[in-house]
Design a protein around this nucleic acid. Structure first.
Length: 260
DNA sequence: ATGCCGACAGGATGTCGA
């Protein structure tokens, strides 16, 4: 089963790019982030026409996440547990059944957190703590799980072109890196790192200042796998071709092949 | 030090992203 995550930066503005990629890559499951639309505005027909089931947790203008799957999506959870007063749509989770068993998948859009001196940074850290709690709960199920998305954390110096540029940024703060590491330390593995230890692989290049042309990127989109999913991991790749296409998102898809 | 680019809502330009 081919599973993928992609921050599309508006599903409406990106519809042609996204459908072109789906036809080219033919993933079985895709977690989308930053769809920037309410549920009713989601172009579900365009994806259903390509054979996908669609589950959406949308929001006007900002955020919003979705899951597309060629297999039925079951046990759908909208919103990250523990945030009854949180209005921001950043999490949706569902269970997919493959030929050899089930896999639980989550589409995650973690808060950016900038500027660090604002209330946005503690919101980011509190949200990551809620994600840790949910990740721990999922681990207790002892089943294959893939927590996929835009974590808005640069894990190490090797995950950005120039660490000095990011020194004051929320994505690169020690607290942000620790929050991600704490989730991994529960027992999740970064699928890309499990397959490819080379530094200098990125998933995001800013639209500004020719970042793509200069390869000034960062790696902030991850597929985190439970032990039961890691056991079945075959490959994990970053599809950077897509950043060079017309009307690209500033993020590219991360794709993992799981034997499920 | 800040903007660079792009999407959105709204109908100009400010907010947000990373």
């Amino acid at each position: 089963m081919k599973i993928a995550t992609w921050n599309v930066n508006s599903v409406k503005a990106r519809l042609e790019t996204v459908t072109a990629w789906l036809k080219d890559a033919a993933p079985d499951v895709v977690c989308l982030q930053e769809i920037k639309t309410v549920d009713d505005g989601f172009p579900r027909g365009a994806f259903e026409d390509l054979g996908y089931n669609v589950e959406v947790h949308g929001q006007k203008t900002y955020n919003g996440v979705a899951i597309l799957s060629k297999r039925p999506l079951e046990d759908v959870t909208r919103g990250l547990p523990g945030g009854e007063t949180d209005e921001q749509a950043r999490y949706i989770e569902a269970v997919v059944t493959g030929d050899k068993g089930v896999i639980r998948v989550a589409s995650i859009y973690a808060p950016n957190g900038n500027p660090v001196a604002s209330e946005k940074f503690p919101y980011k850290l509190a949200w990551m703590e809620r994600l840790r709690a949910r990740a721990a709960e999922i681990l207790s199920y002892e089943e294959p799980a893939a927590l996929m998305g835009d974590y808005n954390v640069i894990p190490t110096d090797e995950d950005c072109f120039d660490p000095a540029v990011w020194a004051g940024d929320a994505l690169f703060q020690p607290q942000s890196q620790a929050a991600l590491r704490t989730i991994e330390n529960l027992g999740y593995q970064d699928a890309f790192r499990a397959c490819d230890a080379k530094p200098g692989a990125y998933t995001f290049w800013d639209y500004q200042a020719g970042a793509w042309q200069k390869n000034h990127g960062i790696r902030i989109d991850f597929v985190l796998l439970s032990p039961q999913a890691l056991d079945r991991l075959k490959t994990c790749t970053i599809d950077k071709r897509v950043r060079g296409w017309d009307k690209p998102s500033d993020h590219v898809p991360v794709v993992a092949e799981i034997d499920i």
